[in-house]
Design a protein around this nucleic acid. Sequence first.
DNA 1: ATTATAATACTTGTATACTAGAATGCAATA
DNA 2: TATTGCATTCTAGTATACAAGTATTATAAT
Lengths: 224, 224
Amino acid sequence: MHLLERQSRETGRDYALRTVKENIITLELAPGSQISENELAAEMGLSRTPVREALIELARVKIIEIYPQKKSVVSLIDCDLVEEARFMRSVLECAVVELDCQLATPASLEPLRQNVLLQNFYLDSYYPETVRELDNQFHGILFDIARKPEVFAQIQNISIHFERVRSIALSTVKNNKIVEDHQAILDAISQKDIPQARALMAGHLDRYEIDTDAIREKYPQYFK
Amino acid sequence: MHLLERQSRETGRDYALRTVKENIITLELAPGSQISENELAAEMGLSRTPVREALIELARVKIIEIYPQKKSVVSLIDCDLVEEARFMRSVLECAVVELDCQLATPASLEPLRQNVLLQNFYLDSYYPETVRELDNQFHGILFDIARKPEVFAQIQNISIHFERVRSIALSTVKNNKIVEDHQAILDAISQKDIPQARALMAGHLDRYEIDTDAIREKYPQYFK
DNA sequence: ATTATAATACTTGTATACTAGAATGCAATA
DNA sequence: TATTGCATTCTAGTATACAAGTATTATAAT
Protein backbone atom coordinates (compact mmCIF):
# COMPACT_ATOMS: atom_id res chain seq x y z
CA MET A 1 0.00 0.00 0.00
CA HIS A 2 1.15 3.49 -0.83
CA LEU A 3 1.53 5.49 2.36
CA LEU A 4 0.65 9.15 2.44
CA GLU A 5 2.19 11.73 4.69
CA ARG A 6 0.25 12.21 7.85
CA GLN A 7 -0.76 15.81 8.24
CA SER A 8 -0.41 17.70 11.48
CA ARG A 9 -3.47 17.57 13.72
CA GLU A 10 -4.95 14.88 11.51
CA THR A 11 -6.55 12.17 13.62
CA GLY A 12 -5.56 8.58 13.05
CA ARG A 13 -9.02 7.86 11.70
CA ASP A 14 -8.89 10.67 9.16
CA TYR A 15 -5.42 9.64 8.12
CA ALA A 16 -6.49 6.03 7.70
CA LEU A 17 -9.57 7.07 5.76
CA ARG A 18 -7.63 9.29 3.43
CA THR A 19 -4.94 6.68 2.86
CA VAL A 20 -7.22 3.72 2.24
CA LYS A 21 -9.51 5.78 0.01
CA GLU A 22 -6.60 6.98 -2.08
CA ASN A 23 -5.24 3.47 -2.44
CA ILE A 24 -8.63 2.16 -3.53
CA ILE A 25 -9.04 4.87 -6.14
CA THR A 26 -5.58 4.29 -7.55
CA LEU A 27 -6.21 0.53 -7.55
CA GLU A 28 -3.22 0.06 -5.29
CA LEU A 29 -5.78 -1.85 -3.28
CA ALA A 30 -7.29 -3.72 -6.18
CA PRO A 31 -10.98 -4.52 -6.56
CA GLY A 32 -11.69 -7.91 -5.01
CA SER A 33 -8.56 -7.98 -2.88
CA GLN A 34 -8.85 -8.87 0.76
CA ILE A 35 -7.94 -6.32 3.39
CA SER A 36 -7.20 -6.82 7.06
CA GLU A 37 -7.70 -4.30 9.81
CA ASN A 38 -4.56 -5.61 11.50
CA GLU A 39 -2.40 -5.40 8.41
CA LEU A 40 -3.54 -1.93 7.49
CA ALA A 41 -3.05 -0.78 11.07
CA ALA A 42 0.49 -2.12 11.11
CA GLU A 43 1.34 -0.55 7.77
CA MET A 44 0.06 2.84 8.82
CA GLY A 45 1.51 2.70 12.32
CA LEU A 46 -1.88 2.80 14.02
CA SER A 47 -3.93 0.46 16.14
CA ARG A 48 -7.01 -1.31 14.85
CA THR A 49 -9.45 1.20 16.30
CA PRO A 50 -8.92 4.20 14.00
CA VAL A 51 -8.43 1.91 11.00
CA ARG A 52 -11.61 0.08 11.79
CA GLU A 53 -13.53 3.32 12.09
CA ALA A 54 -12.30 4.33 8.66
CA LEU A 55 -13.27 1.00 7.13
CA ILE A 56 -16.78 1.24 8.58
CA GLU A 57 -17.19 4.55 6.83
CA LEU A 58 -16.03 3.09 3.54
CA ALA A 59 -18.33 0.11 3.95
CA ARG A 60 -21.27 2.45 4.29
CA VAL A 61 -20.89 3.49 0.67
CA LYS A 62 -20.25 -0.09 -0.37
CA ILE A 63 -16.74 0.54 -1.62
CA ILE A 64 -15.58 -2.17 0.75
CA GLU A 65 -17.59 -5.11 2.02
CA ILE A 66 -17.27 -6.35 5.57
CA TYR A 67 -18.21 -9.96 6.21
CA PRO A 68 -18.32 -10.20 10.00
CA GLN A 69 -15.91 -12.71 11.50
CA LYS A 70 -14.86 -13.66 7.97
CA LYS A 71 -13.07 -11.00 6.03
CA SER A 72 -13.27 -7.62 4.39
CA VAL A 73 -12.66 -7.05 0.72
CA VAL A 74 -12.39 -4.12 -1.64
CA SER A 75 -15.62 -4.23 -3.63
CA LEU A 76 -15.48 -5.26 -7.24
CA ILE A 77 -16.55 -2.58 -9.68
CA ASP A 78 -20.34 -2.71 -9.75
CA CYS A 79 -21.63 -1.07 -12.91
CA ASP A 80 -25.06 -0.54 -11.37
CA LEU A 81 -23.48 1.40 -8.53
CA VAL A 82 -21.28 3.37 -10.88
CA GLU A 83 -24.39 4.24 -12.85
CA GLU A 84 -26.19 5.29 -9.67
CA ALA A 85 -23.28 7.51 -8.76
CA ARG A 86 -23.22 8.97 -12.24
CA PHE A 87 -26.99 9.55 -12.13
CA MET A 88 -26.78 11.21 -8.76
CA ARG A 89 -23.95 13.48 -9.80
CA SER A 90 -25.44 14.29 -13.16
CA VAL A 91 -28.84 15.23 -11.79
CA LEU A 92 -27.44 17.30 -8.95
CA GLU A 93 -24.67 18.97 -10.91
CA CYS A 94 -27.08 20.00 -13.64
CA ALA A 95 -29.36 21.52 -11.03
CA VAL A 96 -26.37 23.24 -9.48
CA VAL A 97 -25.06 24.83 -12.68
CA GLU A 98 -28.55 26.18 -13.17
CA LEU A 99 -28.31 27.79 -9.75
CA ASP A 100 -24.82 28.97 -10.65
CA CYS A 101 -26.16 30.78 -13.69
CA GLN A 102 -28.56 32.59 -11.40
CA LEU A 103 -26.22 33.27 -8.49
CA ALA A 104 -22.77 33.74 -10.01
CA THR A 105 -21.08 37.12 -10.03
CA PRO A 106 -17.80 38.03 -11.73
CA ALA A 107 -16.14 37.90 -8.32
CA SER A 108 -17.49 34.51 -7.33
CA LEU A 109 -16.46 33.11 -10.71
CA GLU A 110 -12.85 34.11 -10.20
CA PRO A 111 -11.79 30.94 -8.33
CA LEU A 112 -13.32 28.96 -11.15
CA ARG A 113 -11.28 30.84 -13.74
CA GLN A 114 -8.13 30.29 -11.75
CA ASN A 115 -8.89 26.60 -11.55
CA VAL A 116 -9.32 26.22 -15.31
CA LEU A 117 -6.08 28.09 -15.89
CA LEU A 118 -4.29 25.66 -13.61
CA GLN A 119 -5.91 22.73 -15.37
CA ASN A 120 -4.54 23.98 -18.68
CA PHE A 121 -1.15 24.43 -17.10
CA TYR A 122 -0.94 20.89 -15.73
CA LEU A 123 -2.55 19.35 -18.81
CA ASP A 124 0.70 18.62 -20.62
CA SER A 125 2.81 18.16 -17.53
CA TYR A 126 1.39 14.73 -16.86
CA TYR A 127 0.59 14.91 -13.20
CA PRO A 128 -2.52 12.76 -13.22
CA GLU A 129 -3.16 13.21 -9.50
CA THR A 130 -3.02 16.97 -9.71
CA VAL A 131 -5.33 16.98 -12.72
CA ARG A 132 -7.81 14.79 -10.87
CA GLU A 133 -7.61 17.02 -7.82
CA LEU A 134 -8.23 20.14 -9.90
CA ASP A 135 -11.14 18.41 -11.59
CA ASN A 136 -12.68 17.70 -8.19
CA GLN A 137 -12.05 21.25 -7.08
CA PHE A 138 -13.76 22.63 -10.16
CA HIS A 139 -16.94 20.76 -9.36
CA GLY A 140 -16.68 21.63 -5.69
CA ILE A 141 -16.47 25.34 -6.49
CA LEU A 142 -19.64 25.05 -8.54
CA PHE A 143 -21.45 23.70 -5.48
CA ASP A 144 -20.00 26.43 -3.28
CA ILE A 145 -21.26 29.15 -5.59
CA ALA A 146 -24.69 27.53 -5.52
CA ARG A 147 -24.43 27.41 -1.72
CA LYS A 148 -24.76 23.66 -1.61
CA PRO A 149 -21.43 22.57 -0.10
CA GLU A 150 -22.88 19.76 1.98
CA VAL A 151 -24.59 18.26 -1.05
CA PHE A 152 -21.20 18.09 -2.71
CA ALA A 153 -19.73 16.43 0.35
CA GLN A 154 -22.42 13.79 0.32
CA ILE A 155 -22.05 13.16 -3.39
CA GLN A 156 -18.35 12.57 -2.95
CA ASN A 157 -19.05 9.60 -0.73
CA ILE A 158 -20.79 7.55 -3.36
CA SER A 159 -18.69 9.10 -6.10
CA ILE A 160 -15.72 7.01 -5.12
CA HIS A 161 -17.15 4.29 -7.34
CA PHE A 162 -17.09 6.79 -10.13
CA GLU A 163 -13.64 8.09 -9.32
CA ARG A 164 -12.11 4.67 -9.26
CA VAL A 165 -13.28 4.05 -12.79
CA ARG A 166 -12.20 7.52 -13.75
CA SER A 167 -8.68 7.09 -12.39
CA ILE A 168 -8.20 4.20 -14.79
CA ALA A 169 -9.69 6.16 -17.65
CA LEU A 170 -7.53 9.21 -17.07
CA SER A 171 -4.40 7.39 -18.13
CA THR A 172 -5.83 6.42 -21.48
CA VAL A 173 -8.39 9.12 -22.21
CA LYS A 174 -7.37 12.58 -23.29
CA ASN A 175 -7.61 15.04 -20.44
CA ASN A 176 -7.83 17.96 -22.80
CA LYS A 177 -11.46 17.04 -23.54
CA ILE A 178 -12.25 17.38 -19.86
CA VAL A 179 -10.54 20.73 -19.53
CA GLU A 180 -12.28 21.95 -22.67
CA ASP A 181 -15.58 20.92 -21.09
CA HIS A 182 -14.75 22.85 -17.95
CA GLN A 183 -13.87 25.95 -19.92
CA ALA A 184 -17.12 25.71 -21.88
CA ILE A 185 -19.17 25.26 -18.70
CA LEU A 186 -17.48 28.27 -17.16
CA ASP A 187 -18.30 30.33 -20.24
CA ALA A 188 -21.93 29.25 -20.23
CA ILE A 189 -22.28 30.24 -16.57
CA SER A 190 -20.65 33.58 -17.27
CA GLN A 191 -23.24 34.21 -19.93
CA LYS A 192 -25.99 32.92 -17.65
CA ASP A 193 -27.05 30.53 -20.38
CA ILE A 194 -28.94 27.95 -18.35
CA PRO A 195 -29.88 25.46 -21.08
CA GLN A 196 -26.36 25.53 -22.47
CA ALA A 197 -24.77 25.10 -19.03
CA ARG A 198 -27.01 22.16 -18.20
CA ALA A 199 -26.37 20.51 -21.54
CA LEU A 200 -22.62 20.93 -21.27
CA MET A 201 -22.55 19.53 -17.76
CA ALA A 202 -24.66 16.54 -18.75
CA GLY A 203 -22.38 15.85 -21.69
CA HIS A 204 -19.32 16.33 -19.52
CA LEU A 205 -20.36 13.72 -16.98
CA ASP A 206 -21.40 11.36 -19.76
CA ARG A 207 -17.81 11.17 -20.91
CA TYR A 208 -16.92 8.92 -17.99
CA GLU A 209 -19.79 6.54 -18.64
CA ILE A 210 -18.48 5.73 -22.09
CA ASP A 211 -15.13 4.67 -20.73
CA THR A 212 -16.51 1.95 -18.51
CA ASP A 213 -16.85 -0.61 -21.28
CA ALA A 214 -13.32 -0.07 -22.50
CA ILE A 215 -11.96 -0.55 -19.01
CA ARG A 216 -13.96 -3.72 -18.59
CA GLU A 217 -12.26 -5.13 -21.65
CA LYS A 218 -8.89 -4.37 -20.19
CA TYR A 219 -9.48 -5.43 -16.58
CA PRO A 220 -12.34 -7.96 -16.56
CA GLN A 221 -11.22 -9.40 -13.22
CA TYR A 222 -11.99 -6.12 -11.53
CA PHE A 223 -15.68 -6.31 -12.36
CA LYS A 224 -18.59 -7.98 -10.63
CA MET B 1 -33.71 8.56 26.19
CA HIS B 2 -36.33 6.32 24.71
CA LEU B 3 -34.92 2.81 24.33
CA LEU B 4 -35.91 0.65 21.39
CA GLU B 5 -36.04 -3.10 21.39
CA ARG B 6 -32.82 -4.62 20.19
CA GLN B 7 -33.47 -6.89 17.25
CA SER B 8 -31.97 -10.31 16.97
CA ARG B 9 -28.63 -10.42 15.16
CA GLU B 10 -28.47 -6.65 15.28
CA THR B 11 -24.97 -5.51 16.14
CA GLY B 12 -24.48 -3.13 19.01
CA ARG B 13 -23.42 -0.44 16.59
CA ASP B 14 -26.55 -0.77 14.46
CA TYR B 15 -28.70 -0.80 17.56
CA ALA B 16 -27.01 2.31 18.89
CA LEU B 17 -27.31 4.04 15.54
CA ARG B 18 -30.98 3.24 15.22
CA THR B 19 -31.72 4.28 18.78
CA VAL B 20 -29.82 7.57 18.77
CA LYS B 21 -31.14 8.50 15.36
CA GLU B 22 -34.72 7.87 16.43
CA ASN B 23 -34.26 9.91 19.59
CA ILE B 24 -32.80 12.80 17.62
CA ILE B 25 -35.68 12.80 15.15
CA THR B 26 -38.28 12.70 17.90
CA LEU B 27 -36.42 15.45 19.76
CA GLU B 28 -36.07 13.16 22.75
CA LEU B 29 -32.44 14.20 22.34
CA ALA B 30 -33.11 17.88 21.83
CA PRO B 31 -31.16 20.10 19.46
CA GLY B 32 -28.25 21.65 21.32
CA SER B 33 -28.21 19.13 24.12
CA GLN B 34 -24.95 17.56 25.13
CA ILE B 35 -24.47 13.84 24.70
CA SER B 36 -21.86 11.59 26.21
CA GLU B 37 -20.55 8.35 24.78
CA ASN B 38 -20.38 6.93 28.28
CA GLU B 39 -23.91 7.89 29.21
CA LEU B 40 -25.42 6.58 26.02
CA ALA B 41 -23.45 3.36 26.35
CA ALA B 42 -24.69 2.84 29.89
CA GLU B 43 -28.28 3.56 28.93
CA MET B 44 -28.21 1.13 26.04
CA GLY B 45 -26.27 -1.53 27.89
CA LEU B 46 -23.28 -1.34 25.57
CA SER B 47 -19.66 -0.28 25.85
CA ARG B 48 -18.34 2.92 24.38
CA THR B 49 -16.99 1.33 21.21
CA PRO B 50 -20.22 0.53 19.34
CA VAL B 51 -21.84 3.75 20.58
CA ARG B 52 -18.86 5.75 19.46
CA GLU B 53 -18.96 4.17 16.02
CA ALA B 54 -22.60 5.13 15.71
CA LEU B 55 -21.89 8.70 16.75
CA ILE B 56 -19.10 9.03 14.20
CA GLU B 57 -21.55 8.06 11.50
CA LEU B 58 -24.04 10.66 12.68
CA ALA B 59 -21.33 13.31 12.88
CA ARG B 60 -20.51 12.69 9.24
CA VAL B 61 -23.87 14.16 8.25
CA LYS B 62 -23.54 16.96 10.80
CA ILE B 63 -26.55 15.92 12.83
CA ILE B 64 -24.25 15.77 15.83
CA GLU B 65 -21.05 17.70 16.37
CA ILE B 66 -18.04 16.15 18.04
CA TYR B 67 -15.60 18.51 19.68
CA PRO B 68 -12.58 16.33 20.44
CA GLN B 69 -11.63 16.13 24.09
CA LYS B 70 -14.47 18.53 24.89
CA LYS B 71 -17.94 17.30 24.21
CA SER B 72 -20.45 16.18 21.67
CA VAL B 73 -23.78 17.86 21.08
CA VAL B 74 -26.89 17.30 19.04
CA SER B 75 -26.69 19.91 16.30
CA LEU B 76 -29.06 22.81 16.39
CA ILE B 77 -31.45 23.01 13.47
CA ASP B 78 -29.49 24.66 10.65
CA CYS B 79 -31.88 26.08 8.08
CA ASP B 80 -29.17 26.11 5.43
CA LEU B 81 -28.60 22.42 5.93
CA VAL B 82 -32.33 21.71 5.94
CA GLU B 83 -32.56 23.61 2.69
CA GLU B 84 -29.65 21.65 1.23
CA ALA B 85 -31.35 18.43 2.21
CA ARG B 86 -34.60 19.61 0.70
CA PHE B 87 -32.83 20.68 -2.49
CA MET B 88 -31.06 17.36 -2.77
CA ARG B 89 -34.22 15.38 -2.22
CA SER B 90 -36.30 17.54 -4.48
CA VAL B 91 -33.89 17.43 -7.39
CA LEU B 92 -33.29 13.70 -7.12
CA GLU B 93 -36.89 12.71 -6.44
CA CYS B 94 -38.13 14.70 -9.40
CA ALA B 95 -35.59 12.97 -11.62
CA VAL B 96 -36.63 9.65 -10.15
CA VAL B 97 -40.37 10.08 -10.74
CA GLU B 98 -39.49 10.90 -14.31
CA LEU B 99 -37.66 7.58 -14.54
CA ASP B 100 -40.62 5.94 -12.80
CA CYS B 101 -42.96 7.20 -15.50
CA GLN B 102 -40.71 5.52 -18.05
CA LEU B 103 -39.99 2.31 -16.17
CA ALA B 104 -43.10 1.57 -14.13
CA THR B 105 -45.34 -1.36 -14.98
CA PRO B 106 -48.69 -2.23 -13.41
CA ALA B 107 -46.92 -4.97 -11.49
CA SER B 108 -44.11 -2.79 -10.18
CA LEU B 109 -46.62 -0.14 -9.11
CA GLU B 110 -48.52 -2.59 -6.95
CA PRO B 111 -46.37 -2.09 -3.81
CA LEU B 112 -46.92 1.62 -4.22
CA ARG B 113 -50.71 1.17 -4.34
CA GLN B 114 -50.60 -1.00 -1.24
CA ASN B 115 -48.57 1.64 0.54
CA VAL B 116 -51.05 4.41 -0.23
CA LEU B 117 -53.93 2.23 0.92
CA LEU B 118 -52.14 1.70 4.22
CA GLN B 119 -51.48 5.40 4.55
CA ASN B 120 -55.16 6.10 4.19
CA PHE B 121 -55.91 3.43 6.75
CA TYR B 122 -53.59 4.83 9.39
CA LEU B 123 -54.45 8.42 8.59
CA ASP B 124 -57.24 8.72 11.15
CA SER B 125 -55.80 6.24 13.62
CA TYR B 126 -53.19 8.69 14.83
CA TYR B 127 -50.06 6.59 14.79
CA PRO B 128 -47.62 9.30 13.78
CA GLU B 129 -44.66 6.94 13.71
CA THR B 130 -46.40 4.51 11.39
CA VAL B 131 -47.46 7.33 9.08
CA ARG B 132 -43.91 8.59 8.94
CA GLU B 133 -42.61 5.13 8.23
CA LEU B 134 -45.09 4.63 5.41
CA ASP B 135 -44.16 8.00 4.01
CA ASN B 136 -40.51 6.97 3.89
CA GLN B 137 -41.44 3.66 2.34
CA PHE B 138 -43.42 5.38 -0.38
CA HIS B 139 -40.43 7.40 -1.45
CA GLY B 140 -38.14 4.40 -1.14
CA ILE B 141 -40.33 2.37 -3.47
CA LEU B 142 -40.12 5.13 -6.06
CA PHE B 143 -36.33 4.83 -6.01
CA ASP B 144 -36.50 1.05 -6.23
CA ILE B 145 -38.70 1.20 -9.32
CA ALA B 146 -36.22 3.61 -10.87
CA ARG B 147 -33.42 1.19 -9.90
CA LYS B 148 -31.66 3.75 -7.75
CA PRO B 149 -31.80 2.18 -4.29
CA GLU B 150 -28.35 3.34 -3.24
CA VAL B 151 -29.16 6.93 -4.13
CA PHE B 152 -32.11 6.72 -1.77
CA ALA B 153 -29.89 5.30 0.95
CA GLN B 154 -27.47 8.19 0.60
CA ILE B 155 -30.23 10.77 0.58
CA GLN B 156 -31.58 9.39 3.82
CA ASN B 157 -28.33 10.27 5.56
CA ILE B 158 -28.60 13.98 5.06
CA SER B 159 -32.40 13.82 5.18
CA ILE B 160 -32.31 13.40 8.92
CA HIS B 161 -32.17 17.19 9.13
CA PHE B 162 -35.32 17.25 7.12
CA GLU B 163 -37.01 14.49 9.07
CA ARG B 164 -36.34 16.13 12.38
CA VAL B 165 -38.16 19.23 11.24
CA ARG B 166 -40.86 17.10 9.72
CA SER B 167 -41.43 15.12 12.90
CA ILE B 168 -42.32 18.37 14.67
CA ALA B 169 -44.52 19.48 11.82
CA LEU B 170 -46.45 16.22 11.64
CA SER B 171 -48.12 16.87 14.96
CA THR B 172 -49.54 20.14 13.78
CA VAL B 173 -49.83 19.75 10.01
CA LYS B 174 -52.59 17.74 8.44
CA ASN B 175 -51.34 14.38 7.22
CA ASN B 176 -54.18 14.02 4.78
CA LYS B 177 -52.52 16.55 2.49
CA ILE B 178 -49.46 14.34 2.34
CA VAL B 179 -51.43 11.22 1.57
CA GLU B 180 -53.39 13.09 -1.08
CA ASP B 181 -50.08 14.11 -2.64
CA HIS B 182 -48.89 10.53 -2.67
CA GLN B 183 -52.08 9.36 -4.32
CA ALA B 184 -51.80 12.05 -6.99
CA ILE B 185 -48.14 11.19 -7.67
CA LEU B 186 -49.06 7.54 -8.02
CA ASP B 187 -51.79 8.42 -10.48
CA ALA B 188 -49.47 10.59 -12.55
CA ILE B 189 -46.92 7.80 -12.76
CA SER B 190 -49.63 5.34 -13.77
CA GLN B 191 -50.57 7.66 -16.60
CA LYS B 192 -46.89 8.19 -17.45
CA ASP B 193 -47.46 11.93 -17.22
CA ILE B 194 -43.91 13.13 -16.66
CA PRO B 195 -44.51 16.87 -16.27
CA GLN B 196 -47.41 16.27 -13.91
CA ALA B 197 -45.44 13.75 -11.84
CA ARG B 198 -42.48 16.11 -11.52
CA ALA B 199 -44.68 19.04 -10.60
CA LEU B 200 -46.57 17.07 -7.99
CA MET B 201 -43.38 15.78 -6.42
CA ALA B 202 -41.86 19.24 -6.29
CA GLY B 203 -44.97 20.61 -4.66
CA HIS B 204 -45.11 17.69 -2.26
CA LEU B 205 -41.60 18.28 -0.96
CA ASP B 206 -42.23 22.01 -0.77
CA ARG B 207 -44.87 21.40 1.86
CA TYR B 208 -42.24 20.71 4.48
CA GLU B 209 -40.24 23.81 3.69
CA ILE B 210 -43.19 26.04 4.54
CA ASP B 211 -43.48 24.58 8.00
CA THR B 212 -39.98 25.52 9.09
CA ASP B 213 -40.85 29.08 9.92
CA ALA B 214 -43.82 28.10 12.05
CA ILE B 215 -41.67 25.68 14.02
CA ARG B 216 -39.04 28.32 14.55
CA GLU B 217 -41.65 30.53 16.18
CA LYS B 218 -42.59 27.76 18.52
CA TYR B 219 -39.12 26.43 19.41
CA PRO B 220 -36.61 29.22 18.81
CA GLN B 221 -34.09 27.64 21.17
CA TYR B 222 -33.73 24.68 18.82
CA PHE B 223 -32.40 26.80 15.98
CA LYS B 224 -28.93 27.98 15.12
C1' DA C 1 -13.41 39.61 48.51
C1' DT C 2 -10.87 38.49 44.57
C1' DT C 3 -7.67 36.40 41.81
C1' DA C 4 -4.47 32.85 40.64
C1' DT C 5 -3.25 28.30 40.63
C1' DA C 6 -3.57 23.63 41.14
C1' DA C 7 -6.19 19.58 41.51
C1' DT C 8 -9.94 16.94 39.67
C1' DA C 9 -13.33 15.34 36.91
C1' DC C 10 -14.95 15.31 32.89
C1' DT C 11 -14.49 14.75 27.47
C1' DT C 12 -12.99 12.12 23.14
C1' DG C 13 -8.90 9.53 20.79
C1' DT C 14 -6.28 5.47 20.79
C1' DA C 15 -4.38 0.99 22.10
C1' DT C 16 -5.05 -3.43 23.67
C1' DA C 17 -7.34 -7.52 25.47
C1' DC C 18 -10.89 -10.57 24.99
C1' DT C 19 -15.02 -12.98 22.68
C1' DA C 20 -17.38 -15.33 19.12
C1' DG C 21 -17.65 -17.14 14.79
C1' DA C 22 -15.72 -18.99 10.46
C1' DA C 23 -12.13 -21.12 7.55
C1' DT C 24 -8.25 -23.97 7.13
C1' DG C 25 -5.36 -27.76 7.75
C1' DC C 26 -4.06 -31.85 9.79
C1' DA C 27 -4.86 -36.09 11.91
C1' DA C 28 -7.59 -39.98 12.95
C1' DT C 29 -10.80 -43.23 11.36
C1' DA C 30 -13.79 -45.74 8.23
C1' DT D 1 -8.45 -42.99 -0.33
C1' DA D 2 -12.06 -40.39 1.44
C1' DT D 3 -14.29 -38.33 5.20
C1' DT D 4 -15.03 -36.70 9.60
C1' DG D 5 -13.62 -34.16 13.59
C1' DC D 6 -10.76 -31.35 16.17
C1' DA D 7 -7.34 -27.84 16.78
C1' DT D 8 -5.28 -23.85 15.10
C1' DT D 9 -5.59 -19.44 13.25
C1' DC D 10 -7.71 -16.30 10.93
C1' DT D 11 -11.63 -12.67 11.04
C1' DA D 12 -14.52 -8.72 13.06
C1' DG D 13 -17.32 -7.17 17.34
C1' DT D 14 -16.95 -5.62 21.85
C1' DA D 15 -15.08 -4.20 26.33
C1' DT D 16 -11.81 -1.93 28.83
C1' DA D 17 -7.63 0.59 29.95
C1' DC D 18 -4.97 4.43 29.11
C1' DA D 19 -3.57 9.00 26.93
C1' DA D 20 -4.32 13.76 25.97
C1' DG D 21 -6.82 17.70 26.22
C1' DT D 22 -10.42 20.82 28.35
C1' DA D 23 -13.46 22.77 31.83
C1' DT D 24 -14.62 23.21 36.36
C1' DT D 25 -13.99 23.66 41.07
C1' DA D 26 -11.74 24.24 45.17
C1' DT D 27 -8.16 26.12 47.68
C1' DA D 28 -4.80 29.28 48.82
C1' DA D 29 -2.57 33.62 48.54
C1' DT D 30 -2.93 38.48 48.01
